[in-house]
Amino acid sequence: MTSLLILNGPNLNLLGTRQPEVYGKTTLNDIEAMCAAHAQRLNIRVSCLQSNHEGALIDAIHAAKGTHDGIVLNAGAFTHTSIALMDAIASVELPVIELHLSNIHAREAFRHKSYIAPVALGQICGFGAAGYGLAIDALMAHLS
């Protein structure tokens, strides 16, 4: 059975209350439930993990090799700063979809640079919580 890792980075545990005008009112628990329901419809397995710590995200990416077939990664602000996350993704050789709730290209200039994009299969941004389902579908299309 196909297995995907849904990996969320810093501050995403605050979804629903953190800047709802930017990130929406959907909570991380809601998103994880949406991902699980979508996976069930597709007859695949998803595992969800969130951490505010860069090293924990890197460890999860490393552990995904041999366990999962692909990763949906919302790295939050680490997208714009973490060469280490980029290297981890390149090292495990799994397809990764970079995901953002907001349109990072329509925001502050520092958010326009992504260290994840060069090693990602693609990027989905600006569709809010619906982006997770789009990312799952994109990974499944790539894997089939």
Score class of each variant (00 low, 15 high):
79 T>E: 02
88 A>D: 12
81 T>Q: 01
90 A>F: 08
37 A>C: 05
46 V>H: 08
32 E>D: 15
25 K>G: 13
64 A>T: 06
33 A>N: 14
4 L>C: 09
15 L>R: 12
32 E>N: 15
74 N>M: 02
73 L>H: 06
60 A>H: 05
59 D>W: 02
28 L>D: 09
69 D>C: 02
7 L>H: 10
29 N>F: 10
13 N>Y: 13
35 C>D: 14
40 Q>Y: 08
51 S>E: 03
13 N>F: 12
54 E>W: 00
86 M>N: 05
46 V>A: 10
64 A>V: 06
84 A>M: 03
76 G>P: 02
80 H>T: 13
83 I>D: 00
28 L>N: 07
51 S>H: 07
76 G>N: 05
67 T>D: 12
63 A>D: 14
86 M>I: 00
91 S>Q: 11
24 G>L: 10
74 N>A: 02
82 S>V: 01
60 A>S: 15
45 R>C: 10
54 E>H: 00
5 L>T: 06
51 S>Q: 04
43 N>V: 12
69 D>N: 14
88 A>G: 14
69 D>K: 04
69 D>F: 02
50 Q>I: 05
57 L>V: 06
89 I>L: 11
30 D>I: 08
10 P>T: 09
59 D>Q: 08
91 S>C: 06
62 H>V: 10
53 H>P: 09
50 Q>A: 09
33 A>D: 13
6 I>M: 15
32 E>R: 15
81 T>H: 03
83 I>K: 01
86 M>V: 00
24 G>W: 12
24 G>T: 06
77 A>R: 06
16 G>D: 10
12 L>R: 04
52 N>V: 08
4 L>G: 07
72 V>E: 03
45 R>F: 11
30 D>E: 13
30 D>W: 05
11 N>Q: 04
50 Q>W: 03
73 L>T: 04
44 I>R: 04
57 L>H: 05
25 K>H: 15
59 D>E: 14
23 Y>V: 07
46 V>N: 09
53 H>N: 12
62 H>L: 10
74 N>R: 02
33 A>R: 14
14 L>V: 12
60 A>P: 06
16 G>L: 09
9 G>Y: 01
14 L>K: 13
39 A>G: 07
77 A>Y: 11
80 H>F: 07
68 H>N: 08
72 V>S: 01
58 I>R: 01
23 Y>C: 04
60 A>W: 02
47 S>H: 13
55 G>D: 01
23 Y>E: 07
10 P>G: 05
50 Q>R: 07
25 K>E: 15
56 A>M: 13
37 A>L: 12
9 G>A: 04
65 K>I: 03
29 N>G: 01
90 A>L: 07
13 N>M: 13
39 A>Q: 12
55 G>R: 00
10 P>S: 09
8 N>T: 05
83 I>Q: 06
48 C>V: 14
15 L>K: 13
38 H>L: 10
47 S>N: 14
85 L>V: 04
80 H>M: 06
84 A>L: 04
59 D>H: 04
77 A>H: 07
70 G>I: 08
27 T>D: 04
86 M>C: 07
45 R>T: 15
85 L>H: 01
